[in-house]
Structure formats: structure tokens, C-alpha cells
Design a protein around this nucleic acid. Structure first.
Lengths: 232, 232
DNA sequence: TAGATTGTTAATCGATTAACAATC
DNA sequence: TAGATTGTTAATCGATTAACAATC
């Protein structure tokens, strides 16, 4: 459609990636894995890496890795490989981790408690800014350095903290209700551990982690193995 | 390829589904959601349901739902809908939940502790049969009614309990090692909460739940929203 | 220059969607 | 019979794979 010349091409592609949508969902889903693989590589002191090495670390094929990275705008050098630090930085920017994201957690039961203390959150570009629950035995206690507030104050807490991401570890029965409140308060991303589909407006992104579902999927393959049986 | 006649067709399709592979992975991944939606429907006392209703509950389109169910062999009646109890049973069988699956959990830290007490495991066709850790402060204590054993005894515990599925909630640094031991002991399905790809032989199935990755994917969309900005 | 390794293209594969004939 | 709703087909879409020309 647009008739640019050779010199501008590479920059144009990078710009497109930076400004935009065109990174396919499947690719986005793999970027965190690449980032982690790069961190491991960096921790070993390597400055350069190859699609072969990085793909092996991330558990994908080299072709897949190169294709994925091409959507971000091509940060490697032919014949040489990828600069570990630079690529790491680029993926960090694309994933939106250059700015710290503020996270709110609702439901400080067993699982919520464990997640609040989970290093993976704080270490990877997120800050936990609030904890909410309805249980009077929990509200007011300190968990992971934060005082648990009452879920009735959800709206005020979102406003005060500027949280944009909510983690839902409530019982399934109240998940949709809390979800609605989070959305009304302005949260745009929700990670839920409650089973069952959540209804949200189009501008809100939901990711569901359902432990029981995961086990059931494993059970399917376990069964298929015994039923299909024996030799190939 | 095979030239069967009309009468045998329906049964043939059911047989194919029962005996086999041909359920696509994407469909398998949605079956637990359908099962849950059916359970909610059943709990409301309904005997019949439709693809419209069930799909809405599961958060998919009716076309998607019907297509998925067609891989299991067609258990609905045109003009009528699906029998809730019957469909529930069929999905249960296909997912391999007719038999109880024995689950072993390695890594009884914060998260492992929470999962051991998680009702979603016991309620949904699984039994937790063993808990393992290396921390002397944890080994020997009782969690969720089980005595935590030392991870050095992993092999013996798998043999004794007949566990086929392992849940990995160890630090990332030791995950691959524990994974190898689980596989060597005969476990065929692994659900890991440690970040990073696990290498396993082809006959073993791995599902990874990575909380940090999920948050990073949410961060991508959060960023895309602010960068892409304003009006559509 | 020769060898290495990317970025991109084209081919394949699988998943989703829409529409409708079959059938209750 | 008329209305409802499935199961299946065909069309579309997106993701993966393989191969290779570009280029360091």
C-alpha cells in the first residue's frame, strides 16, 4: 500500500512493531519464555546467542523463534546471532515491562497468600500494590508487607494505587462479581485462578489459570496412553 | 477409505472417538470448561441444555462447542439439545476421569502447600497420594492429611502410590532435575509451576503454569492500549 | 573468500467460523 | 406440519514449518 524505499525499510519495520498491533497472539504468548531464556543466557555471561541456542532453551524450534522475533522488527545480525542484552531490552519494551505495572490481588486465602509472596511477581516488572479480602480474620493483617484491606473498598484502593492489573484468587462463586468491580474501577487486565469463564468488556484482557483443567488435560493423555495402548 | 453403510455410521464415529487420538488438542483444552459448565447447569436442576446455553456458559461460540463435541461422537439430539447428565458422563470418560488419577506433589513451599489443600484437585477426579520436599523443616510434617516425605525417596513413593501425574512446585533451579526423576520413576504427566521449559521424552506430557508469564502477557496488552492510544 | 546465521518467503497444517441440510 | 437445534461441510483465517537468499 505504502511505497517506501530501501533505506527506510528496516526502521519502518521496527517502528511498526513498536507502535503496534501486528504481533500475533501466539507470538506474544511465547515472548515471556524468550525473555527468561535470555536472562539465563545473560547470567552465564554470554554476550551473543543464536536462534539455535535460544530456541533450545525456550523449548521451541529455531525457525519458530526467528519468525517470532521478526514480528518485533529484526534485532539480530546475519552470520553473527543476537546480542543478548539488546534483545532482552527489546522484548522487555515490547512486553510493556519498561514501566512497572501495578497489581492488585483479591482473595487472600491459601493461594492468594502464596502468590502475594511469590518472587516472580516483584522480580519481573510488577509491584503488588494492594491486597483485598472479605474475611474479618484476614482483613487488617499484614501479608507480604501490605495490610489486607476490605474488598468493599476495592474502588478506592484501585483509585489510590493506580493498579491496572488484578489477580483474582477468590472462590469461583464470587469471581464474576469481583471481576465486574475491578473492571468498573478501571483495571484492564485480569489474571484469574477461579474456574469458569469471566465476562468482560472487549477492552479488558483476561487470562485464566485453572489448575483442575490442567490436570484434566493431563488425564486425557494418561488415559489415551492406556486405551490406545502398546506399540505404535 | 473405509466403506461402511448408514446404520453403522453413528456407532462407528463413537467408537473412533472412544478408541482414539482424533480429538484435536485445541478441543481437548476446552473440554474441562465444558464439563464445568455442565456441572453448573446440572446444579441448577436442568436436564436438557443447548449449544447456545452451554457455549455462553463456557465462554465460546455455539459453533465452536458443536464442532468440539462432534469429535467425541455426537451426543445431542437435533431439535432437542443435549442431555446434561449424559454429556457430562461422556466428557468425563473422554477426559479419562472415569478412573481416579493419582497425583504426587513435589515442593511443599508456599504454593505447594496451597495446592495440596486446593479442593479443585480432590473434587475433580484426582487423589493426592504423596507430598515431597527436601527441607528438613517441612519433611515429616503433615499437610493436607499427608506426611511430607523426603524427595530422595521419590522413586519409592511413586512405586508405592502408583502415581501417574506429578505436580512440580519447586524452585526453578531444581525443576529439571526433579522432572527427570519423576519421568524415570514412571510418571507420565507433569504440571509444573516453575518457569522455564522442561525437557521430557515424547511419551510424557508437560503443562506449564507460569504466573509471571501470564502477567507479562497482560502487560503487553496494557502497554498496547496506552501506546496504540485513543480512538479506534 | 568461505562459513555461519539471520530474516523472509512459500507451503503446509490446524483451528475457527458460518451456513445449512438433516432430523427431532 | 412448523419450529428448533444439531452435526457436518466448506470457506476462512491464523500458525507452524522448511527452505533459502541475503548478509555478516
Amino acid at each position: 500500500m505504502d511505497d517506501r524505499r530501501s533505506a527506510a525499510r528496516r526502521d519502518g519495520e521496527r517502528r511498526a512493531a513498536r507502535e503496534g498491533q501486528p504481533v500475533p497472539p501466539a507470538t506474544v504468548g511465547r515472548l515471556p519464555g524468550y525473555l527468561r531464556a535470555l536472562e539465563v543466557t545473560a547470567s552465564e555471561g554470554a554476550v551473543l546467542t543464536s536462534s539455535d541456542e535460544l530456541a533450545a532453551r525456550a523449548g521451541v524450534t529455531p525457525a519458530q523463534l526467528r519468525k517470532d522475533l521478526s514480528f518485533l522488527g529484526s534485532y539480530g545480525r546475519r552470520g553473527i546471532g543476537y546480542d543478548v542484552g539488546h534483545l532482552r531490552e527489546q522484548i522487555t519494551v515490547v512486553l510493556g515491562l519498561a514501566d512497572v505495572r501495578r497489581v492488585l490481588l483479591v482473595g487472600v486465602g491459601n493461594l492468594g497468600h502464596a502468590l502475594a509472596n511469590y518472587a516472580g511477581i516483584a522480580d519481573r516488572g510488577f509491584v503488588l500494590v494492594g491486597l483485598l479480602d472479605v474475611d474479618p480474620a484476614v482483613v487488617g493483617t499484614t501479608v507480604a508487607g501490605l495490610e489486607v484491606e476490605h474488598a468493599d473498598d476495592l474502588r478506592a484502593v484501585v483509585r489510590r494505587t493506580g493498579a491496572t492489573i488484578g489477580v483474582l484468587t477468590t472462590p469461583a462463586a464470587v469471581a464474576q462479581g469481583v471481576c465486574d468491580e475491578l473492571v468498573a474501577a478501571g483495571v484492564v487486565g485480569i489474571l484469574t485462578f477461579a474456574p469458569g469463564a469471566l465476562r468482560v468488556p472487549a477492552h479488558v484482557d483476561v487470562r485464566t489459570v485453572d489448575v483442575a483443567s490442567e490436570l484434566q488435560i493431563l488425564a486425557f493423555h494418561d488415559r489415551a496412553r492406556s486405551v490406545g495402548g502398546g506399540a505404535s
